[in-house]
Amino acid sequence: MPKIPMPASSHNTALLADLSKAQVDRLTFIDFKLYFLGEIRRADLQKRFQTGAAGATRDLAMYKDVAPENLEFEGSSKVYRPSKAFRPVFEHSVQRALTALSQGFGEIDVDLNEPLIRCDIPTPLSVPSVEVVSVVSSAIFRGLSIRTAYASNTSGASERELVPFALVSNGLRWHIRAFDRKSNTFRDFMLSRMSKTQLLENSPARAEEKFEHDVQWSRIIELELMVHPKVKSPEVIAQDYDMKEGVMRVPVRATNAGYLLRLWNVDCSPDRSAKGNEVMLCLRDPLVLHAAESALLAPGYVDSRPKD
């Protein structure tokens, strides 16, 4: 049985006690879609659970019995949306929600709390607020903007109006790629630095704010990774990364190149001078990063282009 948070005054969670696991799974799915995507349609239930229209209608009616003030029906578009009084019926783990949003599964497997075999997974050090994730993901899904209080380590705290279009994991923490209406540029914004985040229902993304106009997002760079020359047994490292003819080719977005090279400890210096036992790889041609604004994050990268 999924966890149920402290119920809102209008929630009748006692009804859940008599439901089967399959019914609870379907209600959890409805709750998830409303919370993180800002809408649910009958067709979503039909597709996810291979049920008919009548069954989907019953599930929505059952959810309304449990949380009568949580959803509103838009007759013109035949879609249910979260009301202003919406409070989630179930407790959604932010890590599981991010997995579902980024990989398309796991949003209702709420009772699998233990691994199937013994394993040890690092604990994330930077975890965003689940409330922030729900607002941001709804904005991305529906093409809307958000207003948020953002804490920058360079410019301090400020209120921002952003148009997010993608969730991004850099391997250590999550951020969004968004158009910033304050600077009129596309930028990365860390989810953990956002608070007091609101969905702006009447402020959709303008044409020039959509991802198609983000040059750095659209630009794909092919990184050619090689075994670092200081490695004593290069054939072992080449086997680790399944290199072909001593090279591993990885296509990445220009926006993400610097993050990934830092995560992978790839030496991007022109003379391959990085030290440390963690450095096993180097970038074959650091000049390829000149096209990426994120290059400054890459270990050892030097911008050798002539200054204006």
Score class of each variant (00 low, 15 high):
residue 1 M to P: 12
residue 3 K to G: 10
residue 6 M to G: 12
residue 11 H to N: 05
residue 15 L to T: 07
residue 17 A to V: 12
residue 20 S to M: 04
residue 21 K to M: 13
residue 23 Q to P: 00
residue 24 V to D: 01
residue 27 L to Y: 07
residue 28 T to Y: 13
residue 28 T to P: 01
residue 35 Y to D: 09
residue 41 R to P: 01
residue 41 R to Y: 02
residue 42 R to M: 10
residue 44 D to F: 08
residue 47 K to Y: 14
residue 49 F to I: 11
residue 58 R to T: 11
residue 64 K to V: 05
residue 65 D to V: 02
residue 68 P to N: 07
residue 71 L to S: 11
residue 72 E to T: 07
residue 80 Y to V: 00
residue 81 R to H: 10
residue 83 S to N: 04
residue 86 F to W: 09
residue 86 F to V: 06
residue 86 F to Y: 15
residue 86 F to R: 06
residue 87 R to G: 06
residue 99 T to C: 09
residue 102 S to W: 04
residue 104 G to L: 11
residue 106 G to R: 01
residue 109 D to S: 06
residue 110 V to F: 04
residue 116 L to K: 09
residue 116 L to V: 14
residue 118 R to V: 13
residue 121 I to L: 13
residue 123 T to V: 14
residue 130 V to R: 10
residue 142 R to L: 13
residue 144 L to D: 03
residue 145 S to T: 10
residue 146 I to Y: 00
residue 147 R to M: 07
residue 155 S to Y: 15
residue 162 L to C: 09
residue 163 V to Y: 03
residue 170 N to V: 12
residue 177 R to D: 03
residue 179 F to G: 04
residue 179 F to N: 03
residue 183 S to L: 13
residue 184 N to M: 07
residue 189 F to D: 03
residue 190 M to A: 15
residue 192 S to A: 14
residue 195 S to F: 07
residue 196 K to P: 00
residue 200 L to V: 04
residue 200 L to R: 04
residue 200 L to Y: 02
residue 201 E to T: 09
residue 209 E to S: 10
residue 212 E to A: 15
residue 212 E to D: 15
residue 216 Q to N: 14
residue 220 I to P: 02
residue 221 I to K: 05
residue 227 V to S: 13
residue 228 H to W: 11
residue 233 S to H: 14
residue 236 V to R: 12
residue 238 A to I: 03
residue 240 D to S: 07
residue 241 Y to M: 04
residue 243 M to N: 06
residue 243 M to S: 08
residue 243 M to C: 07
residue 249 R to Q: 15
residue 251 P to A: 09
residue 255 T to E: 04
residue 261 L to D: 00
residue 285 D to H: 12
residue 287 L to Y: 08
residue 290 H to C: 08
residue 293 E to D: 15
residue 297 L to W: 07
residue 300 G to A: 12
residue 301 Y to N: 05
residue 302 V to H: 11
residue 305 R to Y: 11
residue 306 P to S: 14
